[in-house]
């Protein structure tokens, strides 16, 4: 297993944010983590990245326990997070953001360079000397993903990559993720847009109020009308419309 989480619990000021989380991701998988706002999706990613310290439970990545590893070391081990809201470095240029991404390489071998990231997201080549803060939301998302790729991740954690993006841009970002996964990158994708997330992944976990309440093949979860309706609201018509457009 690339990632194994056992019985993980996280609390903020004594209030449980996550309880009894068991989750595994195998090498090469593209797994979705979906659930309503406030379910604890970002908390789980931040616990994996070491930014939030779990109260109990264990996290192991590529056979190595992460419980006492500093966040910057976790990134350098090849478990990289693209955080919610992109968090690009606005005062650095596009190229500087990408070069900074190489820091996470540590002693590992490079898999992407400026040229291959620019091939994946051509807009980043056009805007190379611009300050990252001047990019649009979609371009910033591409920069954030490209920047993570520069660090040769073995596994990528993505927090709401579709947030605030126009549907067309969203499709572009998800296409890029599917292509990266086809090239062997393991991905855990956190999404509020459940329909879209289930459509692009093979397996999914449903998180609600800090617990995993469903898990299974994405197609099965998507087919189960109750899950979409009850936990995630109905978004199917929108996606249908979008498919018709593209």
């Amino acid at each position: 297993m690339m990632l194994t989480v056992k019985n993980l619990a996280v609390a903020y000021d004594g209030i449980d944010a996550l309880r009894g989380i068991d989750l595994t991701v195998a090498a090469g998988e593209l797994v979705a983590l979906i659930g309503p706002n406030g379910a604890g999706k970002s908390t789980l990613l931040n616990a994996l990245s070491g930014v939030v310290r779990p109260r109990s439970g264990s996290i192991s990545f590529a056979g190595r326990s992460l419980s006492r590893t500093a966040p910057h070391r976790i990134s350098r081990l090849g478990l990289l997070q693209v955080p919610e809201g992109r968090q690009i470095l606005a005062d650095l240029t596009v190229d500087e953001n990408l070069l900074l991404g190489q820091l996470a390489l540590g002693a590992r071998k490079q898999r992407h360079d400026l040229a291959s990231v620019r091939a994946l997201f051509p807009i980043l080549a056009e805007r190379r000397r611009q300050l990252a803060g001047s990019l649009s939301g979609g371009q910033q998302q591409m920069l954030a993903i490209g920047r993570a790729l520069m660090g040769a991740p073995d596994m990528l954690l993505l927090d709401e990559p579709s947030l605030g993006l126009a549907p067309m841009i969203c499709t572009q970002v998800f296409d890029a993720l599917r292509r990266l996964n086809a090239d062997g990158l393991t991905i855990l994708l956190v999404e509020q847009n459940a329909t879209r997330a289930l459509a692009s992944t093979t397996r999914a976990y449903v998180l609600e109020q800090g617990r995993i309440v469903h898990t299974g093949a994405s197609a099965d979860l998507a087919a189960d009308g109750r899950i979409i309706a009850h936990y995630l609201g109905t978004e199917t018509p929108d996606l249908q419309k979008e498919r018709d457009l593209t």
Binding site: S75, R76, Q81, L89, L100, A148, G151
Partner: peptide, 24 residues
């Protein structure tokens, strides 16, 4: 330099910097 990029990253957004492997 890489050090300079790291300094500017920590100055601008320490959380994002850490997630990129910068040791603040």
């Amino acid at each position: 330099t890489s050090l300079g990029r790291q300094v500017r990253a920590v100055a601008g957004n320490p959380r994002a910097a850490v997630l990129l492997g910068v040791n603040p």
